[in-house]
Simulated assay, not measured.
Amino acid sequence: MHETDETAPGGQSPPPAPPETTWARFRKGPWWPACVLVLILAAAAGLFAGSYTYTMANPTPRNVPTAVVGGYDQARGNAFLTGLGKALDASVRVHTYDSRAAALGAVENQSVFAIFELRDEGRRVVLDVSSASGSSVAELLEQAAPAVGKETGVAVTVRDVNPLQDGDPRGLAIFYISLAAVIIGFVGAIQLSVHARGLTPMERIAFTVAYSLLGGFAIAAIVDWLLGALDLPFVESWLILALTMFASGMTFTMFNTLFGRWAMLPTWGVMILLGNPSSGGAVSWPLLPSALGVIGQWLPPGASVNAQHTAVYFAGHQHVFPFLVLAGWALVSCAVFWTWRHRHPGGRDKKPPELAPDAAAA
């Protein structure tokens, strides 16, 4: 055998390759993504704490829609409403109604959070709060209205026309079950991408539907049948939870298609950092910063809370909007995943395996 003499065209040996720099070795090794993750996790921890503290630690009324019936145009009644707005450091958005029945209908439709019925030319006020509409708003009004009544010489009587269920005295159970559906929804999609990487696109969607239906049933059954925390309209609540889980899972799958291994970042941002604090589940939307109160209704956590809240406490007055939001996220996510499914890191080769050389020779 003859050794080949690799020489340049001019008969000279090629110059040796420059030595790899430390930075190049660092970028190729496992330390680079590990360092990036350290920075991302630190930032995520700070943003997580900041977003929840900003929205929930000190809820402040900004725009509370209320119904007014009776002598609201009398001097004393007008002074009471003005004083209430100052006491809450917010504008009490007043909607006038001709009768208490019409005002109660507005409460059931969740257009207003309370009813001020001014009697005896504004000398007496009956305040009907609705804890089911928002326990934090009802609590604020229950505290502020009697104090303002003393200052303005108005006698105030407070009643709760739509109280919370006994197993959910703080009104947080709906937020918790919606949060569980959101988190397990995208965590399930993450686990499918790790442990069932070979699923085809259609199989991946089918299994997301499967764990969403089963998971939604488990959440509803445990909270209602086992714990008795909420008396749920079972089928409706189950399907809302299942749709929430599916929308959340497919949102991660969409981001995994678009961003690969960094898909968790936009998923966490949309669902946890932004979606959950602005959902209105822990703090009613009139007490949230106004922008978050609007944005939250267009995200899966807020839509899930709204749909579930209406199903549990306002039967017969369900709105289509939260279902459109959940369905929209699910459909858009499926469409993006299906259109660019070749970019998704999962899937398997549909071609038959090649024969081994010995088998081919036989």
Results as ranks from 00 to 15, higher is better:
Trp262Asp: 03
Phe323Ala: 14
Thr267Val: 03
Ser304Asn: 02
Phe337Thr: 05
Pro300Thr: 09
Ser212Thr: 05
Ser290Met: 11
Phe255Lys: 03
Ser212Asn: 05
Gly260Met: 10
Gln318Phe: 08
Phe259Leu: 14
Asp224Pro: 15
Trp238Val: 10
Gln318Asn: 10
Gly249Ile: 06
Trp340Ile: 07
Val294Tyr: 09
Gln318Val: 09
Thr244Lys: 01
Trp298Asp: 02
Phe246Gln: 14
Glu236His: 15
Leu299Pro: 07
Trp262Val: 05
Gly228Asp: 14
Gly228Lys: 11
Trp262Gly: 04
Thr253Lys: 06
Phe323Cys: 10
Ile295Cys: 08
Ala220Lys: 03
Val283Asp: 12
Tyr211Met: 00
Phe252Glu: 07
Pro289Glu: 08
Trp329Pro: 13
Val270Ala: 04
Ser237Glu: 11
Ser304Gln: 02
Met254Trp: 00
Ser279Arg: 05
Leu239Trp: 12
Val305Arg: 07
Tyr313His: 15
Ile205His: 01
Gly316Leu: 12
Asn256Trp: 00
Ala218Asn: 02
Trp298Leu: 14
Leu230Tyr: 12
Ile272Arg: 01
Leu230Trp: 12
Val325His: 14
Asn306Ile: 11
Ala218Phe: 08
Leu232Thr: 04
Arg261Ser: 14
Ala247Trp: 08
Leu239Ser: 11
Val294Met: 13
Met250Thr: 08
Gly302Pro: 07
Val235Ile: 03
Ser284Cys: 04
Met271Ile: 00
Gly269Asp: 04
Leu226Gly: 10
Ser212Lys: 05
Trp268Asn: 08
Tyr211His: 03
Pro286Ala: 12
Trp268Gln: 06
Gly280Trp: 10
Glu236Cys: 15
Trp268Ala: 10
Ser278Met: 14
Gly293Lys: 06
Phe207Pro: 01
Met245Val: 01
Phe246Asp: 13
Thr339Phe: 00
Gly249Trp: 03
Ala221Leu: 08
Phe259Val: 07
Leu239Asp: 12
Pro277Met: 02
Leu213Gly: 06
Ala307Tyr: 09
Gly280Arg: 10
Thr253Gly: 02
Trp225Met: 03
Ser304Leu: 01
Phe337His: 08
Arg204Trp: 00
Ala282Glu: 05
His309Trp: 13
Gly249Ala: 10
Pro266Asp: 00
Val320Tyr: 15
Trp262Phe: 08
Met250Pro: 11
Trp340Gly: 11
Leu288Thr: 09
